[in-house]
Each structure stands twice: as C-alpha cells, then as structure tokens.
Amino acid sequence: MFSLIQIETYKIFRRPRTYIAFAAITSLIVLIQFGLKVDGKSYLDFMLNDLSTTLQIEGNIMNGYLVCYVMLQLLLVHVPLLIALIAADMISGEANMGTLRLLLTKPFSRTQLMLSKFIASTIYTLLLLIWLAFLALFVSMWIFGTDDMFLMKSSYVVLLKENDVFWRYIGAFVFAALAMTTVAALGFLLSVFAENSIGPIVATMSVIIFFTILSTLNIPIFNTVKPYLFTTHMISWKEFFDIQVNDANEAINGSIQNLPKILQSAAILLIHIVVFVWAAIWVFRKKDILS
C-alpha cells in the first residue's frame, strides 16, 4: 500500500500538467502582489472610503498579513479548478491513456489502488496549498512586512494584533486543506465515471462554480439550500480571522468569534470527503474495465 501511494504520487509529479497549477498559482500571486505593491493605496482608499470620514486610520495596513488574506479570498475560489485538473483525472486519465487495464492486472486490490490514488491527490493538494502559503503568506510578509491585521468585513471591521495573526493563518490553511481535499474527493469520484480526462475535470469545475454561485447569490429562495452546499462551508476558514469581544467591546486576543461554526463546517467537509471517496471506491470496485 505504501509503495502504491509512492508510485501514484510519483506519477502525479512526473506529469507536466501537475506543474500548470503551480505555475498558475505563482503567476496569479506575483501579479496580485505586484498590483498591491504598486497601487495598494488606491485599493485601500476605496475600501476605507466609508470609514475614513469619521476615523483616522494609521499604520501599515497593507501589510503581508492583509495581502495574504486578500489573496486567499481570491485564490481559494480558483484553486479548486487547479485541483480538479489533477484529481478529476486520476482514474479517467488512466482509462483514457489505456494504462488502467494494465494497472489493474497487478497484484493489489482496487480498493487499495483507489485509496492510494486518493491519498496521492491529497498529497498534491497539500503541496499546492503549501506552495500557496509560501508565496501568499511568507513572501508577502517579506515584501509587505507584518503589522496588525486590519480586516474589513461587510458589517464590521476587525483589528487583530500582529502577534495574534500567524496562528490564525495556520488554522486557516489547515481548514483550506480540508476544503480543497473535498474538491479533490469530488473530482476523484467523478473521474470514476468517465474514460476521458476532459469530462470529469469540466464536471468538477462546473459543480464548484455552480455551487459557489448559489452560495454567493443573496436571494432568499437560495438561502435555504446554502447550508447544504459544501461550497458554503469551504469559506469558513475566514472565521479564524474574527475575534470575540468582551462586554466592554474589547477584542480578546487569541479568541475566535465562532469556533463552533468552523468545527461544524470542518465536520461537514469531512463527511463529504468520506462519502465521495467511499462512493468512488464502491462504484469502481464493481466496474468492468472496458477501456
């Protein structure tokens, strides 16, 4: 099993396609960093427009911590597409290439193969996120410096002390890993049903985009379905950056406003992963390989 995981991981990282995702993330991040470095002030002025009529805001607002947050907001919508590129190709890609039949005549069970393939896609997902964290967080910290994190939410603002931010990013990235693994699991499930690469990739992307749009639209009729969409829960990483206040409206360092919400979302995502992977294995075990 371990060598099977090794082999599957090896296969992923020997494919040129794998590096498209890394290149895409790199170029997107560099682009945003460049944009914010050059013109971050106008972006800030725009965001602060409302606030600055009554408040005077001083300090290095556009620091590495905020830059990373801005990027995560943007990128965590796009990264699923990059994950689908690999995860939704795990089975169908081999079926398409014709290697699946040879692979399945080797002395290990289909369940073992499926688990190894899923673990390998998860490793890819995690490495992609680590790369993302490195560029979006550490490189931004290096370019923009660190300071308190001034976060503008839609109905209130949060000011986190500099020494109260980093651990939140660890939490956020761990949560993001869970969210992205859910995407990988979905792509993985869909890849069982096809014998070409494009179908499952497009299907996974479509599901993500469709659900995200439903999650985003603020139309009452959709609001009832929102809690049941996993895309709604994928953005709960943001909750790490909301802080509790005491009765005197003082923010409590090291606190999280809504920890139960994070845990609930995490549990829902975890259930999705288990169900997707289990379904993928169940279907694949019964499948006649005709490719």
């Binding site: 009529t53 805001i57 308190d148 603002v157």
Partner: peptide, 11 residues
C-alpha cells in the same frame, strides 16, 4: 500606537 494600526476619531 506602539507599532500596529490605530483607529482614532478623526481630529
């Protein structure tokens, strides 16, 4: 402010 970002009423 001792480092960090400050929010003060304008003026």
């Amino acid at each position: 402010k001792d480092g960090g970002i400050s929010l003060l009423p304008k003026g």
